[in-house]
Design a protein around this nucleic acid. Structure first.
Lengths: 206, 206
DNA sequence: ACAGTTACGCTACGACCCGTAGCGAAAGCT
DNA sequence: AGCTTTCGCTACGGGTCGTAGCGTAACTGT
C-alpha cells in the first residue's frame, strides 16, 4: 500500500521514520492549506525531508494523499451493540466523527475527485481504503443473522450484492450528510437513518 | 448564480455568448484533462476568449466550475410513475445517468472536495446545485402521500427532517455507487435500492 | 577493514501556470 | 457626437512542478 518495497537487500535502507513523517506532514498540510494549494515542497519542508526524497517514493500528489489518509480508516471497528440497529448507529457515528476531522474530509474528497479521470487511482482508492471497510458490513450482517434479525442468503452472489448495496447506502449517506448537506452526524440522525434502513420508509415516517 | 449582474446601465454590455462559450469550454476541459491539470488559460483559449475576460467574471477556478456544472442538474425531473417505488427508481436512474457523464462526475467531486476547506464555496454549491434538487424528494413524497403509500407528517419540522434524510440517502448512495464503488446504476440496482428504502432491510433480503 | 550499493540532502534548472496591469479598439447608451 | 464599459492582447513577477547531478550517509557483503 505504501511505496514499493521490493526487497532491497543491499545498500542503505529507506528510513521508516521519514515515511511516517511525510505522511503526517501531508495530513497537516491538507488541513492547513487545502488540497489545491498544497505543494509537495511544503510537505517536504514540514517533514524535514528533501523534496527529491518524496518523489523517489511516490509518483505524485494523488498517490501520496491516498496513502496518507488510508490508515485513518483502519481505526473503524464494529461496536458491541445488542441489536442490528445499535450496530448501525455505532458505525454511522464513528464514520461521522472520522469525516469531521479536517484531514479526512479534505483528503478523501480530493482523491475521489481526481479518481474520476484516473482509473488507476480509483482502483488504488478502492483497494487501499474502501474495500477494506466492507468488513464492517459483513460482520454486522453475520451478527444480525445469528440474532435472527436478518435471514440467511442462500445464493452467495445475492449475498454479495446485498452487502455492496448496504455499504453504498451507509457510506454514501454519511458522506453526503457530512460533506454536502453539512449537517451534524449525531445520535438522533444516526438513529433515524438506522430506522429507515431496517424498518423501511413508511414505518420510519409513522 | 453566474457572474454578478449589477445593472450596468451604460457602456458595452457583456457578451452572453462569451458566458456560454466559457462554461461549455470549462466542461470540455474538465473532461479532457481533469480538474487538477486544467488551467484557466486552457479554458480561455478553448472558448476563444481572452484570459482576462475570464478573470473579470469569475473569482477563480472553483466558482467557474460550480456555475459550469450547476445547470446540468436542472434537467432532472420526477418521472410519471404509478407508485413510490417507481418514482424512486426513475430518479435514481436519471441521477445515475447524469453522474455517468464525465463532465458531471469530475466537476461535481472537484468542487465538493474544494468546499471541504472553503465554507463560502460549500454554501454556493448547496444553493446553486444541491438544495434545488430537493424538490424531487418533496414532489415524490407528496405524490406518495396522496396515494396513501406514506403517512402525512403533522410537525413541519419533522417533515423537513424526513425530506433531508431521504435526500441524503438517495443522492449519497447513488454518488457512492457511481464514483467510488464504480458499479453500474442500472434498473436492477435501482430497484434493489428502492426496495430497501421502502420495505426495510429484512424484507429486502427476504 | 574495505569495496559495493542504495538512500539521502542539497542545489539548480527549464517549463508551466497564476493573477494582475496597461493598452488601444469595439460596442452599446444618451 | 461624447461617455462608459467590455473586449482582446501583451507583458510581467511570483510560485510550483518534476528532474538531474552531486557529494555524503548508511548498511551489506567478503
Amino acid at each position: 500500500m505504501q511505496s514499493r518495497t521490493p526487497p532491497a537487500r543491499t545498500g542503505r535502507p529507506r528510513s521508516a521514520a521519514a515515511d511516517a513523517a511525510i505522511l503526517a506532514a501531508t495530513r497537516d498540510a491538507l488541513v492547513e492549506i487545502g488540497w489545491s494549494r498544497m505543494s509537495l515542497g511544503d510537505v517536504a519542508q514540514r517533514a524535514g525531508v528533501a523534496k527529491t526524497t518524496l518523489y523517489r517514493r511516490w509518483a505524485g500528489k494523488n498517490e501520496l494523499v491516498v496513502d496518507a489518509v488510508a490508515e485513518l480508516f483502519d481505526e473503524l471497528v464494529l461496536p458491541d451493540g445488542d441489536s442490528l440497529a445499535a450496530d448501525v448507529v455505532g458505525v454511522v457515528l464513528q464514520f461521522g466523527e472520522l469525516l469531521q476531522r479536517p484531514e479526512t474530509r479534505t483528503a478523501l474528497m480530493a482523491v475521489v475527485a481526481e479518481s474520476t479521470s484516473d482509473p488507476a487511482l480509483r482502483l488504488r482508492i478502492r483497494t487501499a481504503i474502501v474495500d477494506r471497510q466492507k468488513r464492517l458490513v459483513l460482520q454486522g450482517r453475520a451478527r444480525a443473522q445469528r440474532r435472527g434479525e436478518l435471514p440467511y442468503e442462500t445464493e452467495p452472489a445475492v449475498a454479495e450484492q446485498h452487502a455492496d448495496l448496504i455499504f453504498d447506502v451507509i457510506a454514501g449517506t454519511v458522506v453526503h450528510r457530512a460533506l454536502v448537506s453539512d449537517g451534524p452526524v449525531d445520535e438522533a440522525w444516526a438513529k433515524a437513518l438506522a430506522g429507515l434502513l431496517i424498518a423501511g420508509l413508511p414505518a420510519a415516517m409513522g
